[in-house]
Every structure is written in C-alpha cells, then in structure tokens.
Design a protein around this nucleic acid. Structure first.
Lengths: 246, 246
DNA sequence: CAGTGGTCTAGACCACAGC
DNA sequence: CTGTGGTCTAGACCACTGG
C-alpha cells in the first residue's frame, strides 16, 4: 500500500554517502575482512557504487571517524585494529607503569560457563529474555598483582565456539581472540563508571571490602549491535582517567 | 590577492584549508564575535580567502569538530556556546536528578584573591614563573547540598577585570561570565580524574575525611592556549561517568 | 614506475530558514 | 523570494608507498 511508496521516498532522502557507508559496513561484516588486506580503493568503490570519488570519500571518512577503518596514504584503507589499550579501566596501571616501557597486563580466564538469563543483559545483547548466556570471569594482572577483575556476558550463538573451551585455552587479549575464533570484531564501546566504596571481589580485593571503580561496558560489533557486555572492577586508589571535552 | 598567492607559495607545505582554519580562528578571537551573529557565509569566505567553497567548507568543518563553531542549515554558521553542562564533574548530580527536569546546580564564589605563583600552574597558563595568579574558590550546590568544590587559577592579564570584584558580583555560570567581562571564550578542556580516599575539603566534606573524586581541568581559549586551570572535587559516592571508546 | 590516498577546483542542484 | 548550508560531480595535481 502506501507503506512501500513511503519507504522508498524515505530511503531516497538518505544522503548517498550514508547509503554507501552502510553498504560498505555490511560488506566488511559479511566478508570477515582481514586487517592486512586493503579494502577496495576509492576509485573502485566509486565505480562499483556508481558515485563520484568525493562521495565515496565522505562515506569512508565516516567509518574512519567511528574507528572502523584507518587510511594510510600511498598504501590504502584498512580495517582498524581496535585500540584495546584504550579501555578506561586498563588505563589504571599505565600511570604507574615503569618509565619508557608500560607493560601490558596479563589476562587470565578463571571461569567459563553458561548462566541463566538476566533480563537487562539479555536485552542489551539482543537475546530473547529466556536464553542462557556465555559467562566468563577473568583477571588482568601485572607484576603478579591483580589490577582488573572482569565479568563478561556473550551471546551463545555468535560466540558458540567459546563455550567448548577450557579457561587455559583462551589467549591474553580477548578481542582479537573473539575475532579469530568467532569472526566477531569489536569496533567501539560505551562505558559507564561508578565508584563503590565497599565492594568485595574474589580476585581483586582478597575477600576484603575496598573502594573500587566499576566500569560497565557495552561493546559493539561491525554491524552496530552490542556483542559483549562486561563489568570491570579496579581498585579506586589506582584510578586515573583522562578526557577531552568540547 | 597578491598576499594570498605569496603566502600560499611560502607556506605551501601546510594545506590551504588548515591555513584558512587558523586565519578564521584568529579572526574570531580578535573580533570577540558574538553568538547571535552568523560568521561570513561560505561563499564570502571563499572569495576573501581566494579558495574554492570545498576548501573553505573543510576549514569550517575542522572548527565544527573542535566544538568552536556550529552550523545551522539555511541560517548560517555561528560561534558555539560551549556545552558547560558536559563537564565530567558536573555530571554527578545529573544521574540523581528528578525525572524530566535535571536542575542546574547553583554556583557560588566563596573567595577571590591573588596568590603566589605555583610553578606547574604558571607554566600551564603560559605565565612567567614568578607572576601571581588570580585564584577563586567556588562551590556548586543543588537542594542546598554542596555537590562540587572548585579551586580555580587564572592569568592576571587576561582576566584583570575579575580581580576587582567581590564574590557576590560573580554570576552562576563562570564561562559565559568570563566571556562577558573579559572576552575570553572557553572552547574545550582536558580533564584528568583521580580518586582520593581520604580527602578533606572546607566546603564539600564538612571537615571530615571522605572519599572524593578529583578532576584537574585545563580549559583552552579560541587561540588554543590554556586560559583557566581548575581542580574540582566531588563525593565519590555520587560519581557517574559515561564515555564512548573507539 | 604505477597505484594509493590527500588536496583542491568550479561548478550544479537540493533542503531549509526567514522575509 | 533570497540566501544559507548540504550534497554531489568530474575532473586536476600532489605526496606517499612499494615494487
């Protein structure tokens, strides 16, 4: 009925460069594009999408700003390795790191299991409310001291390969591991920080109550949906965070 | 016209659009441009700087991204009112705000004086290390409860008019007041957050030691130099912060 | 050298605001 | 209606990369 017509009109109102952006995003998600191979050049994209270079450049520019792509003059445009280090919770230890060589902390999985549905988290992950989720517990340590304690929830479908693994079979960095085993790439995340003055965590606080910072993180995949939900805890005394405001 | 040509040849290493961006920034700073009057249109700018519209648009786009300008289709491009509310320290109370009407807290100056030089702060503000600085103490309250306590340092030259004032002559919001009295516009700021578990503040903690969050803020003016340094304190239990990571 | 992205031009038409 | 910014084109040349 009218719906179709209306939809068509609505769609044609979306700028061409945004349409191309979405197409490109879909293309990259569906092909599990590698980090090493350049995506088609701007000339190629212009001809395949039948648009001028300027328009394609604008589409690509959007994805660069979102942190999905990165350009190298003379070489090409590539999928960007997400900046894993930039997590706010992981900045804790960077402040106190030895001069010159900030050492990456070691990530260790403590527990992998399937847990009952949690309405709020299921909804975030786009899962039916009755579905069970994959649940990980993990600690990050430096100099054999626990710095960050993570609780992680994942969709059972997208991350099915993980549920078969034992804790020791995981790797140090989780996001590249997700990508390798499950083809899921984290491109951005939203974090909420709060402070808990008396919190007790098995791994972080030695069973005592301490002041901690809690970071709730919702990580998005290439298609924009939330693919991982994580709650991280660090000691308040180690906290340091920097930001720019405009 | 000759000037432009010559300049372009001399500075040919810097892209034209960046040159125009700096020229524009200088122009806005020197003319104390108002928020209500649109800056010259893209056509005008293109002809005054003898560049194409596309190039001028790119220059303007830079300043929009930096939060200096804002565009309104059909109306023009304007100096942007800085988003004062977006300060991370001021987000505390927004979380607990009554539904529908997050009330702005009331800002009240407690003290205005000239203080001895502090090497670190003098350097940040670009002042000779022996110069005295203007120093303000201020609290922000909601429901007659102190939410944030600020210590503020300013250059004596740029903010000379303030040193003559009594506390009660200040206004609720400082940044618009700076602009009105001293022609100084804050366009961006860099903040560093840490947690102090046992901190005592005259206004915030009733003389007791409490867990607080400390935010050090360096605020930049139109020309990119730091024009205000501020240390803000808020109760840790009220802290809430959101951010996007890419 | 060829191919990539980076910059720039000189137009065109559209969408929106305000008179 | 005019003037603004928003989108788009079809080229040009430059700067950088790697074979």
């Amino acid at each position: 009925m009218f719906n179709n017509d209306q939809k068509y009109i609505e769609l044609s109102k979306i700028p061409r460069y945004l349409q191309i952006k979405y197409e490109l995003q879909k293309f990259l998600a569906e092909n599990s594009w590698s980090f090493e191979q350049a995506i088609p050049s701007e000339q190629e994209l212009a001809s395949t999408y039948d648009a001028s270079i300027g328009t394609v450049r604008k589409a690509v520019e959007c994805l660069v700003e979102e942190g999905v792509l990165i350009k190298h003059q003379g070489k090409g445009t590539f999928l960007k390795h997400p900046a894993f280090v930039e997590s706010s919770i992981v900045r804790f230890y960077l402040r106190n790191a030895k001069e010159g060589k900030p050492e990456m902390p070691i990530g260790e999985i403590k527990c992998v299991k399937s847990v009952k549905a949690n309405p709020r988290i299921n909804q975030l992950l786009g899962e039916p409310v009755e579905n069970e989720l994959i649940y990980l517990e993990r600690v990050r340590s430096a100099d054999s001291k626990v710095i960050v304690s993570d609780k992680i929830w994942l969709s059972p479908e997208k991350f099915a390969p993980l549920s078969e693994l034992k804790p020791e079979q995981f790797e140090n960095l989780l996001y590249p591991f997700y990508f390798k085993l499950c083809g899921q790439l984290v491109v951005s995340a939203k974090e909420q920080m709060t402070i808990l003055l008396n919190h007790c965590d098995t791994y972080l606080t030695d069973g005592q109550e301490k002041a901690v910072i809690k970071v709730c993180r919702a990580a998005k995949g290439l298609d924009g949906s939330i693919i991982e939900y994580r709650e991280s805890y660090g000691l308040a005394e180690d906290f340091y965070y920097e930001t720019i405001i405009t």
